[in-house]
Amino acid sequence: MTTETREPTRSLDASVIAALGAAERPPRANAVSSSLTFGWRALLKIKHVPEQLFDVTMFPILFTLMFTYVFGGAISGSTGDYLQYALPGILTQTVVFITMYTGLTINTDIDKGVFDRFRSLPVWRASLLVGALLGDTLRYGLASFMVLVVGVLIGYRAPGGFLGVILAVLLLLVFCFSLSWLWLIVGLKVRSPNAVMGTSMMVLFPLTFISSVFAPPETMPGWLQAFVDVNPVTLLCEAARGLMDDAPDSGDILIVLVLSAVITAVFAPIALRLYNTK
């Protein structure tokens, strides 16, 4: 046996010992860095599973076209007028709907076992959730972009201009970020990814449809109007619509911001608690 040449044969135990010996122990990742790393994971997942963007892109396109051409004439007299009214609403609805993927993602992670791996790491535990929300933000942005492109293509013009649209989208993101905490709770509580879908749909359908998204509430019966007026989606939709229509209502915007803060303050601690004791 000479010591000059290494044995070419692969014996895993020897290489494992070598790899372990080479392991340094870097300083622990801080909360920001671990959250960003989880956000990076969400981007990678979009890269590898681009199909997941299908709903995010097709859904809004379909909705925009369908509502404009099917109901537009009947509701507003002309499709063009209806588009001007409904597009901010459709934008709101689309983004609000997509928030449910937050719950779906976390539930799939639990289902697959990756969740336990991440939870066994010495990182700030909530960073997985924060990272997921960062990834979701990208989705919201993308969906908003699709709705706006399709809208403009079929004739939508925003009186509020570019700035108004950007501010409206930002407002939507703030609200959805807070709503995501609710879906995290659902994702942590419910047994299977399918059940998450079902639960979220049951909440989101009435919430987005019984609102001022598709039609002005004035034509609805009084008891329904009462609900529509307090529906958070109506408040959000009106604030966004104001911004895009160049008639920003600081009262509406303030309400949405306060609402977002309240939702986060209530649901984030619950989600974090569930996450820690799961």
Binding site: R28, T37, W40, L121
Partner: peptide
């Protein structure tokens, strides 16, 4: 901080590549 766990069922992200999974974990370890 001092233990590691390999679960009974695959505990990595199946959608990512092998390298991406390890890089992800390494980043999380700092």
């Amino acid at each position: 901080a001092r233990v590691a766990m390999t679960g009974q069922f695959a505990s990595l992200d199946e959608d990512l590549t092998g390298l991406e999974n390890l890089v992800l974990l390494a980043r999380l370890y700092g």
